[in-house]
């Protein structure tokens, strides 16, 4: 039995475990570099070169190109580092939430608010 088989299956949720951490290392390392404004600017100057420098694989590069959060997660991305990537484009966690759930941002915010009533 592998580790992943023993794991609890939580719908719509990826547990960022050792397997994901190995798979996503290069992608997460690139996103971690976006703590620096200089690196964010450099990424914007030449996105492909920046991805190459960090050794992203093809699925990771495609997901970066498409700004697709679910694909970035599937490629091993961790949301805390991905949030720094999203920050480059001024996207917040509600933009990301809306994209992942296929909703408009207003609908996503309304859903959040409804949970409080």
């Amino acid at each position: 039995m592998t580790d992943s088989k023993r794991r609890r299956d939580i719908p719509g949720t990826t547990i960022f475990d050792g397997e994901q951490a190995r798979k996503g290392y290069a992608l997460n390392k690139m996103c971690y570099s976006f703590n620096s404004a200089e690196n964010r600017a450099e990424f914007l100057r030449d996105e492909e070169a920046y991805c190459r420098r960090f050794g992203l694989n093809e699925p990771q590069r495609a997901a970066i190109r498409q700004r697709n959060v679910l694909d970035l997660l599937a490629a091993g991305g961790n949301v805390y580092y991905l949030a720094k990537f999203a920050g480059i484009f001024g996207l917040d966690v509600q933009d990301i939430g809306a994209q992942q759930t296929g909703m408009s941002k207003d609908a996503f915010k309304a859903k959040l608010a409804a949970a409080g009533t």
Partner: peptide, 13 residues
């Protein structure tokens, strides 16, 4: 709260 995945936006009051 949950930020990522299709369950993003989940809370449990």
């Amino acid at each position: 709260h949950q930020l990522e995945g299709k369950r993003a936006g989940f809370t449990n009051k």
